[in-house]
């Protein structure tokens, strides 16, 4: 088989005009042959209009997951033009001479919507979702207005993907709460990134001394290259929930316990207690080091993936799937706060 990329783009198309040409674009590029689809999912990506598209990351995603990817960006819905600008990139495998039809491996449709097409984007996108395979929407933009039709969205996409590392707690809360009320499942890219360090922490806490320090630390210091974003906020919330800290995200604290957030080139968390210190750092590996007050230290490590990025995170997230532990965390740590 040989692989080729089909590219097609058009600006200022009306919605109906696009729906008419859309089914013909790929067959026309294949001299009339109708390809078989290898797609295993539809992945919608909702992004703010001014967010530049990272085609390299998207291509990496499609290399891992044969998919129909729908990138949705909206201009102001008050714009005078009703319609969309479209860019399509499709990967097709053409059999050599076996008589089989070509295989549509993946297709990525980037759409910038304007006017009423933007205002009613969910109805618009619904028709583009492939049937009988899972459909996820990664919400990579700002939270929507209060009158957003979450009920319609939940009829189109079965799960909402968030990235809590890139959202404030308030934004995360708003999106998670709205989606939950619409009975959508919620998945979190940051939760997937945090699985290896969660396992390291859980493994270390088989030792009661390590567990006692982590349960009742005297002092916690957090080093972060950017004090706007904490390393693994969802994992931090998990620790807070499972160990009963009731601290939420830093900056936070309680009488007698300070959580200190400082600048640090290497992201880390350090927990100090009477029996020793536990330090989690992320550089080439997740490394968890235990320095007891008496006796020798221990360390646990997990190599970071070779190619970090959206594709890796998404692959890890899809492997985890809908995680009951994350659902409990959401209920406890985020949604519970609003009640």
């Amino acid at each position: 088989m040989s692989r080729r990329t089909i590219r097609w783009q058009k600006q200022h198309l009306s919605g109906p005009a696009f729906m008419t040409v859309w089914p013909e674009i790929i067959p026309q590029a294949l001299d009339g042959a109708v390809p078989m689809s290898a797609a295993v999912m539809t992945l919608g990506i909702y992004a703010d209009a001014d967010t530049p598209l990272d085609w390299h990351s998207i291509e990496q995603v499609t290399e891992q997951h044969p998919a129909r990817i729908l990138i949705i960006q909206r201009r102001e819905s008050s714009a005078s033009f009703d319609g969309l600008d479209v860019e399509l990139r499709a990967e097709v495998e053409q059999p050599d001479d076996s008589g089989r039809p070509p295989l549509l491996f993946s297709e990525c449709l980037a759409m910038t919507l304007s006017g009423k097409t933007a205002a009613y984007w969910i109805d618009w996108v619904q028709a583009l979702i492939r049937s009988n395979i899972p459909a996820y929407l990664w919400w990579a933009g700002s939270p929507p207005d209060d009158d957003f039709r979450w009920d319609l969205l939940s009829q189109s996409f079965q799960a909402l993907i968030l990235d809590s590392r890139k959202l404030s707690l308030g934004e995360w809360h708003q999106l998670a709460e709205s989606a939950s009320h619409a009975h959508m499942s919620i998945m979190d890219l940051d939760w997937a990134r945090g699985l290896p360090p969660r396992r390291l922490l859980a493994e270390a806490c088989d030792d009661p001394t390590v567990l006692s320090v982590l349960s009742q630390p005297h002092h916690i210091s957090v080093a972060s290259p950017s004090t706007d974003h904490l390393m693994l906020p969802s994992t931090w919330l998990w620790l807070s929930w499972r160990l009963g800290w009731d601290l939420g995200l830093p900056p936070c604290g309680r009488p007698g316990l300070a959580v200190e957030v400082t600048f640090g080139a290497t992201p880390s968390w350090t927990f100090d207690g009477p029996d020793g210190s536990l330090r989690l750092t992320a550089s080439d590996s997740w490394v968890l080091g235990w320095s007891p007050s008496v006796g020798g230290g221990l360390s646990w490590s997990h190599t970071l993936p070779e190619n970090p990025g959206l594709s890796r995170d998404l692959t890890d997230l899809l492997e985890i799937g809908l995680d009951p532990l994350y659902e409990q965390l959401l209920r406890q740590a985020v949604l519970g706060r609003s009640q």
Binding site: R199, L201, L243, R254, P324, L325, Q328
Partner: peptide
């Protein structure tokens, strides 16, 4: 903060076992 000493490892619960 929890006042009682934890007997079980609460971080293991629901984490899923990787072999």
């Amino acid at each position: 903060m929890m006042d009682t000493v934890l007997q079980e490892n609460p971080l293991k619960e629901g984490l899923g076992g990787r072999r």
